[in-house]
Amino acid sequence: MSDLKSDFEKLSLDFNDQQNVLNDLLGARSKLETQLQENKIVSDEFSLLNEESKIFKLIGPVLMPQDYNEAKINVEKRIEFINSEIKRVESKIEDEKSKIESTRDKLLSVRSKMSS
């Protein structure tokens, strides 16, 4: 009986931990989404500009003049990077969800053993 009880406690701790991890991951996912949207807006804006446009980038407190093509490539790279990050986080989220699923199954089986 005490074995079952300690199993149960351990599993529910695991379950809580996994849920916290999942919440963190979901937070990271939505942050990435925000960044992606912002970069997309910038990229849309760049597509309306041309090489004569004056482009600056705010670095710390200073506005640095930027080359149009360079800035455009930079933003496109950022979008690519963010997309790959989103994929990475999403696969982690799937992993964590399946982990939670299996922990919950174990928890339920231990609980039914305890009550019987």
């Binding site: 910038v42 980038k57 506005l63 933003v75």
Partner: peptide, 13 residues
């Protein structure tokens, strides 16, 4: 005008 178009980029318009 210098317009903030996001992620730290400003464009003269």
């Amino acid at each position: 005008y210098l317009v903030d178009i996001g992620t730290g980029y400003y464009v003269g318009k």
